[in-house]
């Protein structure tokens, strides 16, 4: 719907995005780890508002106050918008247990504008800066421990996802990038609880992200990981292929020679 829209203020938008990028770059260079609001131009907010009214307001309300079809977005913050829209979960296709991941409908500029607009509705978690997402100094072993304590119960020890109640699922983390993992933790999308920076500090999050990235590399020294689903696929394999081979050998031994 909005893929090829032409807005009269294209030039202003480009300037706005450039300013926004400069702001993010500045924040990345700055040494403080406190989340900070990126430089947001008024034009970007207006652009975002226009997109919001067109694509989001039917469920979330004209002022983001929420309706019976969608929750209030006041105070959810830019991180929540960026996560939901960039993973294609929003705009949702219809009511249901959970909005599935799909191809993103909006492009990066439009997502930034939407996030900038929703951020003006009330204070909420901002999009993490590049510096927050830097996992180069992260402690991998701590990340593994924290992952098993806080994440593995839903997303599985190998991060392949798992079942929730009433048909919901915790998604696989195998395709998630650092930014969206971070945003999911601070915004608590859908049924996921919130792990804000105050309760799970930035360095713990970086360790968790580094651990997930390690899982994503998917090194299987023993060969085919069979989806790393554990006893389900491994059992199926050995019952079908392993016992099948033994049966074939037994039949060969028992068959009468010609």
């Amino acid at each position: 719907m909005a893929l090829s829209r032409r807005h009269p203020a294209v030039l202003a938008t480009v300037i706005g995005v450039a300013l926004g990028t400069m702001g993010i770059a500045y924040a990345a260079v700055d040494s403080s780890t406190k989340p900070k609001t990126t430089l947001v131009s008024q034009t970007q907010v207006e652009e975002g508002k226009a997109l919001f009214i067109e694509g989001c307001s039917s469920c979330h309300g004209l002022a983001g106050q929420g309706t019976s079809d969608g929750p209030s977005l006041i105070g959810v913050g830019a991180a929540s918008v960026d996560f939901q829209v960039s993973t294609g979960r929003m705009p949702g296709v219809g009511p249901g247990i959970q909005a599935p991941k799909k191809k993103a409908i909006y492009n990066e500029t439009e997502i930034a504008a939407l996030a900038a607009y929703v951020a003006t509705l009330g204070p909420g978690p901002a999009i993490p800066t590049a510096e927050l997402l830097d996992t180069s100094g992260a402690e991998l072993a701590l990340g593994g421990e924290l992952f098993r304590t806080n994440c593995a119960q839903c997303h599985g020890v190998s991060g392949r996802g798992g079942a929730l109640s009433e048909g919901g699922v915790a998604p696989s983390l195998m395709d998630s990038d650092a930014k969206n993992i971070y945003q999911a933790m601070i915004s608590g999308p859908q049924n996921m609880p919130v792990f804000s920076d105050t309760t799970l500090p930035v360095e713990d999050k970086q360790a968790i992200i580094a651990y997930i990235e390690q899982l994503q590399k998917g090194e299987n020294p023993g060969g085919n990981g069979l989806g790393r689903l554990g006893p389900v696929t491994e059992g199926l394999f050995i019952w079908v292929v392993g016992l099948g081979a033994l049966l074939a050998v037994a039949i060969w031994i028992g068959a009468k020679a010609k």
Binding site: L142, L146, T149, V194, F195, T198
Partner: peptide, 21 residues
């Protein structure tokens, strides 16, 4: 205290929806 990292937990640090083990 938080599991694995053993930090005391400030009530004001927990926003609605937060889960802590």
């Amino acid at each position: 205290v938080t599991d694995a990292t053993y930090r005391k937990i400030k009530a004001t640090d927990m926003q609605i929806g937060t889960l802590i083990n």
